[in-house]
Design a protein around this nucleic acid. Structure first.
Lengths: 265, 265
DNA sequence: GAAAATTAACTGGTATACAAGATATATTAG
DNA sequence: CTAATATATCTTGTATACCAGTTAATTTTC
């Protein structure tokens, strides 16, 4: 027993040992590994954006070959990007046949709305308790900015400000992880949202609803804030069947994607 | 104009055209592509299980080389599996240095508990409304099974039955996607849970709590069911700092993982 | 001896080549 | 002309080779 240990120790000094024990980069200290943007990340972000903005329509083929020459990289990083999109539920691959932009499963949209409501509820409640006065002022500024975008009729900027408002609530609630989850489920609804025609007077309405939420938060009335937020989110609940009829190829009834949405277990 | 169309049509019949327009496998019809289990899937599932069960401790190195010879496959599928685990927040890679089982960020555990509560809340509420009598009977059977496992002292089987109970609620609520999300956040807590010593009398307590939830559901009292479920889940809220002191290398204070948990946007 | 510079052998990221299955076109049979 | 068969050429999945950065052991320097 002791001898084998000696042998091992001897060998350790004799033969060049490959990096003691492959120690992790950082124990409890918070060392952050600077991860240079890999090629696969670039492809991923671009594709992700293109799909979410409906630039790439549901059902459209995703050609690996085309992407490789488009980005001037090999198949490997392209493939990694595609696989990540599969994980996100934005892309489907038919094993030896082809890869396509995933259609929007109606059931997923329905559940995503419910899930978002639940997550935003706990978030706004915590934010009502934890937000500082400066944070609330910050939110007022964001709403004001959103008002200006509404006046200018800039729908894209308006939506970005909308995102910023909800993000600031999550930040005040100190729920960065839950915010990531909210974003995740939003993606599932985002494409569906893009199909809705810009409803007349919707933008000012949103500004009003946001203001009501914030007022309740500023008054530290959590229940009221939650109620206003729920009312706000419920406005998204439009009649889905209409869109299914308009773009039948963009949706699926059978939620075959459900199983892939999260690969857990 | 008409001429060019003719040319195109002519070329279509002359030159062999590679698969007309690369049509998606199935439009709105619910064709399900049978996806044969790829090698990367096998590696993924195994690693996933090993990490969640703490068989692979946080901080432990994940050697691609070793896995390739262990499974007799090349680096490609191994790499795919590892990347999926990164997406799950279960492993971290240091670019040109090494890959390691991710440590458990305390903030993620905290948020995961909150998120799960929020999601289980809407789930049990919907289930109270939608569950059939047969489904409720089924749940009673599951609880009974859990009781038997508790009596037998089989902790692993007990936990599986626990999972089954919550899954059946989600099924009754018709929220398969939300259930996937719940599972996803559970994973973050699961490793932490495994560290807790089997608390004396915990198992019978869980059975009692489950029964209370189900009784409220059977009585169609949604608010009560939600309340019982929340009480049940709050029991998991143990003092985390204790575990941080016991296994300091298993946890991180700085939630560097938060950003990677979901790669959204 | 101790500390700085060197170096060898690891790592993950990428490129490329090959294998195997799927599908629309072309061909053939009736 | 229609329907069944054949086949060419796509596709994704996998294997392998190469590159560049990192790290720990070694060597050198003082």
């Amino acid at each position: 027993m002791a001898e084998s240990e000696t042998d091992a120790a001897l060998e350790n000094r004799t033969r060049r040992k490959p990096r003691a024990a492959n120690a992790p980069p950082a124990a409890s200290s918070g060392i952050r590994v600077r991860s240079a943007a890999k090629n696969s990340d670039i492809v991923y972000r671009d594709l992700h954006k293109a799909i979410v903005t409906m630039e790439l329509a549901p059902g459209a083929p995703v050609l690996e070959r085309k992407l490789t020459e488009q980005y001037g990289v090999s198949r490997t990083p392209v493939r990694e990007a595609v696989l990540r999109l599969v994980e996100d539920g934005l892309v489907e691959v038919a094993p030896k046949s082809g890869t396509f932009v995933a259609r929007i499963p109606l059931s997923v949209v329905r559940e995503a709305l419910v899930a978002r409501r639940a997550l935003e509820e706990v978030t706004v409640r915590a934010a009502t308790e934890l937000s500082s006065e400066s944070q609330i002022m910050q939110m007022r500024a964001i709403i004001q900015q959103q008002q200006e975008m509404a006046d200018a009729g800039d729908e894209e900027a308006f939506h970005q400000a909308d995102d910023k408002f909800h993000a600031s609530i999550a930040a005040a609630a100190q729920y960065p992880g839950i915010w990531k989850m909210i974003q995740q489920v939003r993606i599932q609804v985002e494409r569906y949202r893009r199909l809705t025609l810009p409803q007349n007077g919707r933008m000012p309405m949103v500004v009003k609803e946001h203001t009501e939420v914030l007022d309740a938060m500023a008054a530290r009335e959590a229940d009221a804030a939650v109620a206003r937020m729920n009312e706000h989110l419920d406005k998204l609940q439009l009649d889905i069947s209409i869109f299914r009829d308009l773009w039948p190829d963009y949706f699926t009834i059978d939620p075959s994607l459900d199983e892939k949405l999260f690969a857990g277990k």
